[in-house]
Nucleic acid binder design. Sequence first.
DNA 1: CAAAGTTATCTATAAAATCGATATCCATCC
DNA 2: GGATGGATATCGATTTTATAGATAACTTTG
Lengths: 303, 303
Amino acid sequence: MSALPSLRQLRYLLALAEHLNFTRAAEASFVSQSALSTGLKELEATLGVRLVERDRHSVALTAVGDEVVARARQVLAAAADLSEYASDASRPLQGQLRLGVVPTIAPFVLPRVMPALRAQFPRLRLALREDLTVHLLERLRKRQLDFVLIALPFETDDLRVLPLYKDKFWLVGLEQDPAITGRAIQISRQWTERLLLLEEGHCLRDHALQACRASEVASVDGIEATSLLTLVQMVASGMGVALLPEMAIRSRLLDHLSLKARPLAAPAPERVIALVTRSTSAHMTEFEAIARVVIDHQESEYP
Amino acid sequence: MSALPSLRQLRYLLALAEHLNFTRAAEASFVSQSALSTGLKELEATLGVRLVERDRHSVALTAVGDEVVARARQVLAAAADLSEYASDASRPLQGQLRLGVVPTIAPFVLPRVMPALRAQFPRLRLALREDLTVHLLERLRKRQLDFVLIALPFETDDLRVLPLYKDKFWLVGLEQDPAITGRAIQISRQWTERLLLLEEGHCLRDHALQACRASEVASVDGIEATSLLTLVQMVASGMGVALLPEMAIRSRLLDHLSLKARPLAAPAPERVIALVTRSTSAHMTEFEAIARVVIDHQESEYP
DNA sequence: CAAAGTTATCTATAAAATCGATATCCATCC
DNA sequence: GGATGGATATCGATTTTATAGATAACTTTG
C-alpha cells in the first residue's frame, strides 16, 4: 500500500481547490507559493496520480482530484472533530454550539425547545441559524454548524441522521371551501390544482409535491410564497389551498383567520423531523441531549 | 481552535493503544522508543488533554484516550481509503478486493453471484472470507476487508449499509409434524418450545429469536447447531423445528430429507440482506456493482 | 513585443522528527 | 537494603522535511 498523504498536504489541496490559483491558495494558507507548489507536487507523488491540470494559464481539478478533495475534506473534518472533542472532553454540555434549523420547523419547535434546553443545560449556549436545508447541510459539512434540524426525506449521504418524530401534513383552506369536508381528506384534483407552494428550495415545497404524487403543480399564476406565514395569508385571501405540517397547525398559526384545516386520509403523507450532525462530530453527547429535548417538547395544543 | 494532530502522531497512539507498552509500540511502528514517546507527548500537548495514564508500572488509556483512539482509527482509515482510491482510480473494477460473507448467506448467494461477477467483471478478483457478522465488521473497520454481506438488523453505526432485498423466515420440521399445517404458520408455543437454534454468535440465531419475540428459548437439551447444514440434520432427526431463511429453502437444502417447510403468517418475520462497507471506502464503484449483481441473482427455484 | 501574472525549480535555512545514549522511576528478587 | 530488570522520559547530535526567497519558464494581456 502506498504511503499516506500528510494532513498539511491535504489542506494545501483544499486551499488550491478553493482558489484554483497557487499564489492565492498559498496566501490563504499563510505559506509561500513555492511551499504550496512543492507540497502539492509531493501529494501527487505519494498518491501516484495527477490531481490538478496546470495546462495553459489555468488550474483545474482532474476527476480524481475532485473526489480526492471531497475525501480530504472528510479526513480533515474528522481530524478537527477529534481535536475539538479532546479539548472539550473535560467539560461537556457547556460552551457555544451552533444549531441550524429549517424555516418550516423553527417557529414551531424553537419556542418550546430553547427554554427547555436553557433550563436543562444552563451552561450550554446555542447559536441559531435559520436557512434552507441545502445551505444548512453545506455549513454542517464545512464545520460552520454543529447540528441541523431538518425534515426528511432529504439526501444526507455520509451525515449522522437521527429521526425524531413524524409530522403529518394537513390540508388548509377557506372555511367555506367545498373541497375540504369530512374528517379526513382524500387527494383529489379538486384541490391539488389549487395547491399553493413555498418557493423553490424549501423542503416543504418538495414534500407537499411528493404528498400529491406530482413533481409539478400548476402554481396559481406562478405565485409562490416565501414563508409559511405568507403562504397562510395567501390561502386566507382565497388564492388556493395549502398543505401545512401538523406542528404548524397546532401552533395556532391559523387563529383568527377563518380557515379550516383537516388531516389527509391514510396513508397520510408526512415528513420526519430529524437532527443531523457530522458522523465525526465532537459533540455526540450534546447531540443526543438536544434530540431528547426536541422529542420531549413537541407541539401538543390542538387548533 | 487548537491545532490538528499529525497523522503520524495518531498512528503512534494507535500502536500504543494496541500494545499498551511504549517500547513494543515503537518497534511495531519501526521507530525508536524515544521517537514514539515524544510523539505521544506532543499529541497530548496539541490536544491539551491526557490520553494515557503512565502511573506505576503500566500504561492505560484514559476515557478521553479511548474515544480519541476510536476517532484516530477513523481518520487514518479515511486517509488510507483516500490514498487507495487515488492509486486505483485509473483502473476500477479490477484488481483484488476482499469480500466477507456470513455463513448463513454464503452458501445460497455465492454459487450464483460469483460466476456472474466473474462474467461481468473478468478483471476483478474477489477474495472471500466466511465468518460471523461481528468478526467481519471488525475486519472491515480495520481495513482487512473491503465489503461485507450480512443480514440486518444489526448494529452498524458509522458504516455504509446498502439493503439489498428481504429474506423471509420459513418454519421447517418433519413431514409428519402436526404443528406444521396449512399454508402459513402462526407463531405458537406448539413449536417455539421445540425451536432449534444455531449456536451463539450467528445472526440467524438472534433473528429467529426476534421472530418468536423471545430473547430466550429453552433450547432442546441445550444442544445448538454450528451451521445451517447441521441444523437441518437435527430437524431431520426429529429433535425439533427450525426457522430457516427462504433463500436456504429455495436452494434445495431440504431435498431428500422428508422435511416440510412453510412460510410464516403475516407479518412474516424476515431478515434484510445488506452489503456493507466503510463510508470512506475507496471502492464505491465496485460496491455498487457488486450490490447490483447480488440483487439480480437471488435464489429463484422453489423447493 | 513588453508587461503582468502565473507555476516550477533551485538553494539556503529553519523546523521537525529521529536515533542512541542516558537518566529516572518502580517493582521485585536476593 | 541494594542490586536487577523492565519500563518511560529526556538530552544532544543528526537526519529529514518544510519553507522562504530568488529566479526561470511560460502564458495571457495590452
